[in-house]
Design a binder for these strands. Structure first.
Lengths: 334, 334
DNA sequence: ATGAAAGCGCTAACAG
DNA sequence: CTGTTAGCGCTTTCAT
């Protein structure tokens, strides 16, 4: 079953070498003690397979070598990709990852962040669902925080990766406008619409500039969330001529919905996404979307945190520009 | 920056109520103390926003309310889905998840498992990449272990979810056989081919029974891993008439490769996957695959662990049967 | 160069 | 019913 053998401790090494626990602790970190001793201690440590207990270390205070990664929703395919990329990048830096998934709920997001802090993570990388609550201020006081693509109310960050939403939304809407689309449904991942969310603000602004009729519809991530919604939106009498999904995962659901309704894409309806998931060029029809260079995002976020932890000075903010990727799913209004 | 405010401790509540730390500890867990006291303590605790420090708890011993989830590779789309499902299921049980990603490397897998144990997880749910090393025995001695779809050398598990690979592989190969395919490339996620891996064993066995010429090719997960490989395999003079990928993510790469080579699927080559990722019906052509009911897998794995932790008796093994899903990507040999 | 001791926050055994 | 005490494994003064 469980809990039979016990893990080796400093005490054991101390006994075996006739040294004190303190001496062993120093020796293992190569400090203070005689070079000869350090050899001897290392040998014993290796022999019994000693590794410092991270929990004891954490309780004592000091670095844990672990950072928390909090994503808004692992149901979103792109965030899965992002999480993987971040995890990989952290590991390359010798840092362990604690990955948590808020599952689309801002309140849970805050709760999870608090838990990660309680676990003594050395830092937190957050790709948030939404603002929600001022408790972020407190969290950012306790642990260095890097945000990806979203502001956290009242939080002080040590690094920020932001997406140029205005450019992304703008390019996409102009693309649709050029194709003749005037009535567009925007499917936003969002528990509820919040006017202050930058993406939505960008949509409103750009839509107004272009004279587009854009309705923003809040929508759960994932196929199962967006498909029924797409069905509903597309069954209306004044059916929009284009669906702009603020995440590729949502767009997939829309594609699925179109298929069920027997609507041709892009003949009857144009569909586009917003993060260029690797599969977006494989779906049928391949998806027009905006690409944000996920690897760079991950590298920047991790880089910011690592640099901060190493007390390096420098600018800790980067703006990621979109690249409009036009594929088959958008076409002229017929 | 970081580390300004400090989290409230039992000590604080003790001071504020005039009780001892121990009394407060008991009170908060509703043990021993007077109902009146328990009220008072709870009030103060809520007021200052107290939550027990999980690290201190962990060091002390006893439950941490956290379980580790270790997946072979988060680069695999299906495993992303699985990880999300497990995480969600655990959360529903009030359990926190520590998700770790071995990124396709069995050695790293072992290392991560050890780290999770060191973090005092109450249990470990592992969807392994490969056997590798007898150190699993030691790990399973320290913490209850549930495996999904793979055996761990020498490990004693408290629960097992296994896939009926023989049935899955058999159905798929019979399907291909019936369509006239005789020369098939099997793309296996595997660092190296290992004959004892059940899936590969099943392939060999079933292929022999049907008189098929099956070559097993080890292949990294993810599009970027399988696409070049698919290109290579499909460019050979004696090109196989079908590609059977042991994961949908790998199949996507193969589809991509076919597209690049100008090969029609299923006209020139049939392609099939093996786990029915949600997007497999949306890719073009939609993917023939085997479906394994991911939610049930997650529910079973979590259920086994929870039942074990609650000392409930019962059978802790379930065999998941495949469902062959025939879509557009497989067709008769022309 | 090394040892003794305190303490991180919590729980459990043992008194009263 | 409640308080005292010890200790989980580690790091860090402060002595020696």
């Amino acid at each position: 079953m469980a809990a039979t053998g016990k893990r080796p401790t400093l005490r054991q090494i101390a006994d075996e070498t006739g040294l004190s626990v303190a001496a062993v602790s120093y020796a293992l970190r190569g400090e203070r003690v005689a070079p000869e001793t350090i050899e001897r201690v290392r040998a014993v440590a290796d022999a019994i397979g000693y590794t410092a207990d991270p929990v004891a270390r954490a309780l004592r205070g000091g670095r844990t070598g672990t950072v928390g990664v909090l994503v808004g929703s692992l149901a979103d395919f792109w965030q899965q990709t992002l999480a993987h990329a971040i995890q990989r990048e952290l590991r390359a830096q010798g840092i362990q990852t604690l990955l948590a998934d808020a599952d689309g709920d801002p309140a849970q997001e805050l709760d999870l962040a608090a838990r990660l802090v309680a676990q003594r993570v050395d830092g937190l990388i957050v790709a948030p669902v939404g603002p929600a609550g001022g408790a972020w201020a407190e969290i950012s006081e306790r642990v260095p925080l890097v945000t990806i693509g979203g502001r956290l109310q009242g939080a002080v960050t040590v690094g920020e990766v932001v997406f140029d939403q205005t450019a992304g939304v703008g390019e996409m809407l102009r693309h649709l406008h050029a194709l003749g689309h005037r009535r567009i449904a925007v499917l936003s991942w969002a528990v509820a619409i919040s006017p202050d969310r930058p993406t939505e603000a960008a949509v409103r602004e750009q839509a107004a500039a272009l004279g587009l009729d854009c309705e923003i519809v809040p929508c759960a991530y994932s196929l199962d969330g967006s498909r029924p919604l797409a069905l509903e939106v597309l069954s209306r009498p004044d059916r929009p001529t284009a669906v702009f999904a603020l995440s590729d995962a949502i767009a997939y659901g829309a594609l699925h919905g179109c298929r069920e309704l027997g609507l041709d894409v892009p003949g009857d309806v144009s569909v586009c996404g917003f993060d260029d998931h690797p599969l977006s060029r494989l779906v049928a029809p391949s998806l027009t979307t905006a690409s944000w260079d996920t690897d760079r995002v991950a590298r920047a976020a991790v880089g910011f945190l690592v640099a901060h932890l190493a007390d390096e000075p420098g600018d800790r903010r980067t703006v990621v520009e979109p690249r409009l990727v036009v594929r088959e799913s958008t076409g002229p209004v017929s």
